[in-house]
Design a protein around this nucleic acid. Structure first.
Lengths: 217, 217
DNA sequence: GTCTATAGCAGGATAGAC
DNA sequence: GTCTATCCTGCTATAGAC
């Protein structure tokens, strides 16, 4: 923190390139050689800065993924606060907007979701990290927020299923972008993303019991 | 086809083991050595029967994934036909049931979805195969089926988004099983899968415009 | 902190015996 | 068709010079 010399810069570049490559190809398909070449530094740099490849992967989550998830949550909370009371509709809209448009660039968002989807399908140590520091706290926050405004007698299980489902939708449309484009021909431009947000909100409303009068901003 | 000697048996075993391993770990994380060992045959067998590793992977889709997708569609069509008119509710229910309970064993279903999710996130030649032979035709069939019974003025784009979304939900709850269990504590037993089917149907109804009177079986 | 050089091993693929 | 033996490439990781 005190010194800001070449060391830190190399480390940062390694983290950036590693994240991009791990997201794009998965852990095993990426070699340390590829990462160091992309980061324009020496092969030995990964071992010097991170000990080994595994730990570089973990550090990508610690130093990049978790903070970025914090950014997304912050964006969500602000846009929700701007809407007054947290109705199911408002929550769904703020969530979908934060995660599909939000504060991240297209590339950053895609990286972010590719990384977590790989972990969802095949959890490693990185998943535990993310589950503890991001998912469980955030899901609890959402549950506490939604519980009072949900239909009576919905139950904790159904509540959690609904929260999981919204995230499922958001993840799916982000990570399967290439496939959706090839199958349905949709380009992920601004207009389509806006439409997607609307779609996900609508799609989620029934589950969230948000059939009450629709309200916008 | 004429001869059913050791040759065919080895080939079948290779396909089975390869499918399981590719689904579980992904293409790059699996070695030919690992596959042949699991199939209890010689290292050279992969090259003899399939030419190379890449082609074995493709053959897994051609000889296993596509036929199994056919089974699922068949199950879907039968259970839909048993319900009379194809209302949005009936379609959603038949789909969710076929893909979450349906004719496959838990392990087979998991394999099936793991494989396709990897391809959705990072399409290879196998994705083109599946898109041409399975996805595009089936999505078209569903669209033709739903178009007449959907709300007026929904539009082709929204129709396709809704179809994609149901598949997204189904895929998500199948492939992220390990993560869902760790985060929410749900075991994927029979009761939970039945609940999941109900949940997905409900969750999808608004999007499908199925707010009409609910009908079952 | 960064580099070169290299150890040491695992990977895909093939040749050729049986 | 199946096997063993082997080639060669590419991998992670480290030692040691600068």
């Amino acid at each position: 923190m005190a010194q800001k010399n070449k060391n830190d810069v190399t480390k940062e570049r390694l983290l950036n390139e590693a994240e991009g490559l791990f997201a794009q190809k998965g852990y095993d398909a990426v070699s340390v050689r590829e990462i160091t070449k992309a980061a324009n530094c020496n092969l030995a740099a990964v071992n010097y800065h991170f000990g080994n490849k595994q730990n570089l992967y973990l550090e990508v989550f610690r130093a990049r993924w978790v903070p970025r998830a914090g950014l997304l949550q912050e964006h969500f909370r602000k846009s929700l606060a701007a809407q007054g009371s947290p109705s199911p509709t408002a929550v769904a809209k703020a969530l979908a907007e934060a995660f599909l448009v939000g504060p991240l660039s297209d590339e950053e968002r895609h990286r972010h979701h590719q990384l977590i989807v790989r972990e969802l399908g095949q959890p490693t140590e990185a998943f535990e990290l993310v589950a503890d520091q991001v998912m469980r706290p955030f899901f609890k926050e959402l549950a506490d927020m939604l519980r009072p405004v949900m239909p009576e007698g919905l139950g904790e299980k159904r509540l959690m299923l609904n929260i999981l489902s919204i995230f499922g939708m958001v993840l799916y449309f982000n990570f399967a972008r290439a496939a959706v484009t090839r199958i349905a021909g949709y380009e992920y431009d601004t207009a389509f993303k806006a439409r997607l947000v609307e779609h996900i909100v609508e799609f989620s409303l029934k589950g969230l019991g948000g059939a009450e009068k629709e309200e916008m901003r």
